[in-house]
């Protein structure tokens, strides 16, 4: 497949968040997508967002971030507020890591934390719900309900578990992250499945799965380029904006085994190189975990 130098067809626009006028409580809402050309080709629009990830149970979070944020990690509301006001993130991605623990049943806390983080922030919110297939339907319902009207970006739908998240998105008016393992055709299939369940195409964001730098990132980079090229060439089932979350980045050996004095620098370098490269490959939203990476990425987008 080659890309023509002419303008391609447009990536579909997806709206995230809802202001008061739009039925929510956000101070801003974002529109991503709309591009007709390769990233950084000088042609607008180019709406690139940096999300800082936080979680509701820090036991399942990289130690290097826990050490850096200190007490914040025990308070999702304050952590989210700092993400926006102190660290400068465009938006927050809230991960319900609590659902990783055995025998999880604190469903009420899911809705409450969603509401708490919404109250602490002024911008659109990404919510990463269940980590366990058996919990999907209840967890996604609670997240969905907690954010009703706020047009969350809700994750994550995968080929063998997308119904619960799709149902919650449809019932409460949210957008959905569709994740497939580094493969153009699987990404396309999942989008088709989601559309068949009634999720409109302008409420899907593709997550092509991002391997960490040095640990499979090259595959992710190329698959993002291929998805973008396919979309510009007219494949409507792939013409959605992309989100990249290099989730494993802070647990790679280079970061884990860095000498303590260098650990933050190594963590930030590793996240930065992965996430910036994802932007260059076509991601509209990149998600990172170390607060300092946020600032680096925001600056990088200005030069």
């Amino acid at each position: 497949m080659t890309e023509s130098s002419d303008e391609g067809l447009a990536i579909r626009e997806v709206r995230l968040g809802a202001t008061r006028a739009e039925g929510g409580t956000r101070e801003v809402s974002y529109v991503i997508g709309g591009e007709r050309a390769l990233p950084f080709s000088g042609k607008r629009p180019e709406r690139l967002l940096v999300a800082l990830e936080i979680c509701d149970d820090p036991r399942f979070w990289p130690p290097v971030v826990r050490d850096y944020v200190g007490d914040l990690s025990n308070d999702p509301g304050e952590w989210a507020r700092a993400a926006e006001r102190t660290y400068g993130a465009d938006l927050v991605r809230l991960n319900f890591t609590s659902t990783k623990q055995r025998g999880f049943d604190a469903f009420d806390a899911i809705a409450a934390t969603t509401e708490e983080v919404l109250a602490a922030t002024t911008r659109p919110l990404i919510v990463e719900g269940s980590n366990e297939p058996e919990l999907d339907s209840e967890v996604f319902r609670r997240c969905g309900e907690g954010g009703e009207g706020e047009r969350l970006l809700l994750g994550t739908a995968e080929a063998d578990r997308y119904r619960s998240v799709a149902a919650a998105a449809l019932a409460y008016g949210h957008a959905v992250i569709a994740q497939s393992p580094i493969d153009v055709n699987l990404a396309k299939q999942l989008n088709i499945l989601l559309c068949e369940t009634g999720v409109p195409q302008d409420r899907i964001v593709i997550d092509p799965y991002t391997g960490a730098l040095g640990y499979g990132f090259e595959y992710s980079y190329s698959v993002m380029e291929r998805i973008r090229l396919a979309a510009l060439a007219g494949d409507a089932d792939l013409a959605m904006p992309m989100i990249s979350a290099p989730t494993d980045t802070l647990s790679v050996r280079e970061v884990r085994e860095a000498v303590p004095a260098d650990q933050d620098a190594m963590a930030v370098a590793w996240e930065f190189y992965t996430a910036y490269s994802a932007f260059v490959a076509g991601a509209s939203i990149v998600c990172v975990r170390h607060p300092r990476t946020v600032e680096r990425l925001k600056k990088a987008l200005e030069v």
């Binding site: 990132f217 980079y221 280079e254 260098d262 190594m266 370098a269 190189y273």
Partner: peptide, 17 residues
């Protein structure tokens, strides 16, 4: 810096694989 060096060299290796 050592961190930048290592990340840049790794990215170069990845992209040229």
């Amino acid at each position: 810096s050592p961190a930048s060096r290592e990340a840049a060299l790794t990215l170069r290796q990845n992209i040229y694989t």
